[in-house]
Design a binder for these strands. Structure first.
Lengths: 151, 151
DNA sequence: CCTTGAACCTACAGCTACTGTAGGTGTTAG
DNA sequence: CTAACACCTACAGTAGCTGTAGGTTCAAGG
């Protein structure tokens, strides 16, 4: 028993890169696993589950800080799950805000593109709009910070 | 004539931070403006227009490389605006992809949150879903790279 | 003329969440 | 035994800025 995986296997199991695991360890999101005699990390099943949790949460767009909070809440199974819900709702709110922001961008971009009927750059509406059109308040906010994904 | 603005005024006029202007200069997006005797940058109206162009394009989510391309295209007013259009359409495509991705996230998050009916963390669906649910292929792609906005 | 405070200067560190590289060591199959 | 591959550390780089430290310059008031 007590099958332990090297970092490559763990990465495969959790669907992430080897370096990502080392990174999570470095920032304290994963514990430092025991090492083999030759100094190689050996991950227990529990570590891999934690890693998978992190990856799933990341895939849903949760920032690492939120995941940190979720993980520590997960360690207190008898507490109310109110705080967990709050984090998830915050994430949902964030996603919805980004969607609205991007939809506004899409409208603007479409309008701009549709107005361009080809021809010379001097007459191009795209360039013109970018040169002259003051973007509305809408675009001044920092709604869309960053995304998610594993390149 | 030839009113020239200090960096603070230019930033105000273009709606960005002073450091942002210096950054754009550093990466070669803005020319290095002439300096006063006391070594302070003096921006011409033309520089401010270029800066505003950049800010508008950023507000629409164009990455700096695309803006670089747009700017150099803008310097050739007799060329066809096909390339300009292509950049704008690429940006639109990118925005649309992000929207779809975020809408998928939203569905997942909503589902997860709705299933949670309060109670103890041990029974929390949110934690459970994150622990056990393997995210579909959909979330493995790098669709949403980064956003836009001026914090 | 002198001072004060704001605005400017350079250079560099920091943010998110990784990813990639260099240069070296461990492990395993043939 | 050796080749190939996985692993190790440490650090640099990505995008697009933002913030800080430590020092000048400038304009206005006394």
């Amino acid at each position: 028993m007590a099958t332990r995986l090297t970092i490559g296997r763990a990465a495969e199991a959790a669907g992430c890169k080897v370096q990502t695991i080392r990174y999570y360890e470095q920032i304290g999101l994963l514990r430092r696993p025991p090492r083999s005699e030759g100094n190689q990390r050996l991950f227990a099943h529990e570590d891999v589950r934690r890693l998978a949790f992190i990856r799933h949460a990341r895939a849903l767009g949760f920032p690492l800080q939120a995941i940190r909070d979720l993980l520590s809440l997960g360690d207190e199974p008898d507490q109310s799950c109110e705080a967990v819900d709050a984090i998830a709702r915050a994430q949902l709110g964030d996603v919805e805000e980004r969607i609205e922001y991007l939809q506004a961008l899409r409208r603007e971009l479409k309008r701009m593109i549709e107005q361009c009927r080809g021809g010379r750059i001097a007459d191009c509406r795209v360039i013109e709009v970018l040169s002259d059109h003051a973007p509305g308040e809408m675009f001044d906010r920092t709604v869309l910070r960053s995304g998610v994904g594993s390149p």
